[in-house]
Write a protein that binds this DNA or RNA. Structure first.
Lengths: 237, 237
DNA sequence: CGCCTTACCTACTCGCCAGTAGGCTTACCT
DNA sequence: AGGTAAGCCTACTGGCGAGTAGGTAAGGCG
């Protein structure tokens, strides 16, 4: 119909390298997110990108390099999106809230990116997981710093750094998991989901820094190790 | 050294089928947990199991069947471990606490199982993810029911089921993520980690069902969508 | 003891996919 | 225009790994 088709069948229009590289990366993220690293084939990626396989190798190197580049690009995009949403001068709870909003906003608009980052990257044991774990670690440290900082405002004995880190890990994990759930239940807007998580974790943590600790009703405390669950390093009240 | 070695090199001692099947499954879980589904080869599994490849196929069918069987077995073991730790008559918070303890206890003693379940299964798009998502879904429903039930004790407008489900998803995700973190930081006993998560989520949820909702300080509320984060369906205070 | 069933093996086939050799074409530059 | 470099291709190789064919030992049982 259109005279748009290339002069020779199977010959793509000539484009500057930078543009092609973007196309290829987009295609790669798409395919990797749908199939995972191993199941994705370079043939399919090249097909989706609208070019032939040797171009892939000419521009982006091996399959592993391509994948690593995808992870790096998407991770950077996400971290920037979050950083742009947070003001360093705000009080901790507001910072956390802004971060959550930015995070869920990004996931909602970049589902493929999120799939690649969260599922694929973490399950491949190679240098990818490293790359990914690095970014994840930065996110956790950020949250941990926020937690430690916010507990400075109180006169509580101050939780250890390890403890803050583990709580931050739990929080980040809750965010990831909730994002996954959201992808399967997309009827609600990002803000609502973010708010829900904010309420869950902040109100919980708010009570913790106030020294308020949940305690099991003191009957048959120990079921398998006899440890007291409530007070660890905090005030034994 | 020992005269234990089989009569012919490369010939395994003859064993009844049930025993071999267990050996093979154990080997498979081990290899799958270390390498992931695709990277794991049937050759390696058979080697670890101490038998030859055709036995794998004779007893456990194809690679996919084998993997699915692994997932099912480990998932069942884990759900049973948790169910055994929880008494249905206890109040909700105690049930949750018992469940968390049982969960972290299981993970601590079955790291390979956990790896297979959490990382590998969820990232393969086949019928496995289904199997796994099913179990995960059951866990989430369980927690969600707990949450809904516990809010029945209060006179709060009662959160919707969808909301409870999403909170449960966040909670389960927090648990999974914290378990991963724990595997990298194994210096603390299971009970302490479980207690930490219990404090985080329960104290937080406790405030929620009491109608207590975090609210942003009312200045420049909207940063990207102008949505009020705090009250959704709950009391507008 | 001999027979047969069950457990077990070695040694292949076959398809898929990462990666490459070598050649054609089109746009820009002078 | 015509040279040349950058973009693009078809068509292969080579290896790895799933799955199988066909044969060998070993324990039970008459």
């Amino acid at each position: 119909m259109h005279a748009e088709q290339p002069v020779r069948p199977g010959r793509a229009k000539r484009l500057p390298r930078a543009v092609r590289e973007r196309q290829i990366m987009d295609a790669a993220v798409d395919v990797f997110s749908r199939l995972g690293f191993h199941a994705a084939s370079m043939d399919e990626i090249s097909e989706v990108a609208g070019i032939s396989k040797p171009m892939l190798y000419a521009y982006l190197g091996s399959k592993e390099e391509l994948f690593a580049t995808c992870i790096r690009r998407e991770a950077t995009r996400m971290m920037e999106a979050i950083a742009n949403g947070v003001e360093a001068e705000e009080p901790p709870d507001v910072q956390l809230w802004s971060g959550l909003r930015a995070f869920f906003g990004f996931v909602g608009e970049n589902r493929a990116s999120w799939q690649v980052l969260h599922r694929q990257a973490s399950s491949q044991g190679g240098p990818f997981a490293e790359e990914l774990a690095d970014m994840r670690g930065r996110a956790i440290s950020l949250v941990a710093a926020l937690l430690v900082h916010s507990s400075d405002f109180t006169n509580v004995p101050r939780a250890g750094d390890k403890e803050a880190e583990s709580l931050a890990a739990a929080l980040v994990g809750a965010g990831e998991s909730l994002a996954d759930w959201w992808l399967d239940n997309p009827q609600e807007p990002a803000g609502v989901v973010a708010a829900r998580l904010m309420n869950l974790v902040w109100m919980g943590f708010g009570d913790l820094v106030a020294g308020d600790v949940w305690h099991p009703p003191s009957r048959r405390t120990g079921q398998e190790s006899g440890r007291e669950p409530g007070p660890e390093k905090e005030a034994t009240s």
